[in-house]
């Protein structure tokens, strides 16, 4: 749903770091608590990157599971598939999220650039 505007932000970041070189793969880390659908992100990326210097590059998503730490007993654990933020150990409900909210461009793969093969 909001993947289209996110792709605009990704394009800005990638362009800045690519410095004119040909990007093949954009590695993106997406936390489980981010509501980003990888397929939709890939589809929107095709639209946003089309006919730009980034045309032909693809986004590869690394999903990061959500983890929480109980403020009461200190137990830390994966949240799991159900969005229940109670401690799996003591049942305490005051837990902090320690992973799963990531949403960042981690790295870019740049094409080797023999002369004359730098895209269009």
């Amino acid at each position: 749903m909001h993947e289209l505007s996110l792709c605009g932000s990704i394009a800005d970041i990638v362009s800045r770091h690519a410095e004119g070189r040909t990007v093949t793969v954009i590695h993106v880390q997406v936390g489980q608590l981010r509501q980003v659908v990888p397929d939709t992100l890939a589809f929107c990326w095709e639209m946003v990157s089309a006919d730009t210097a980034l045309d032909g590059s693809v986004i590869e998503v690394e999903t990061v599971p959500a983890r929480m730490r109980c403020r009461k007993c200190g137990h830390s654990d994966e949240v799991g598939d159900l969005p229940v933020f109670a401690c799996h150990d003591c049942g305490g409900i005051d837990a902090e999220i320690i992973a799963g909210e990531e949403f960042m461009v981690t790295s870019l793969d740049l094409a080797a650039e023999p002369a004359g093969e730098t895209g269009t």
Partner: peptide
């Protein structure tokens, strides 16, 4: 034949 460059930039950074 590819080069990987680290970025580590938050996508919501501009927002």
């Amino acid at each position: 034949g590819t080069e990987r460059v680290a970025v580590l930039e938050r996508i919501f950074g501009e927002n």
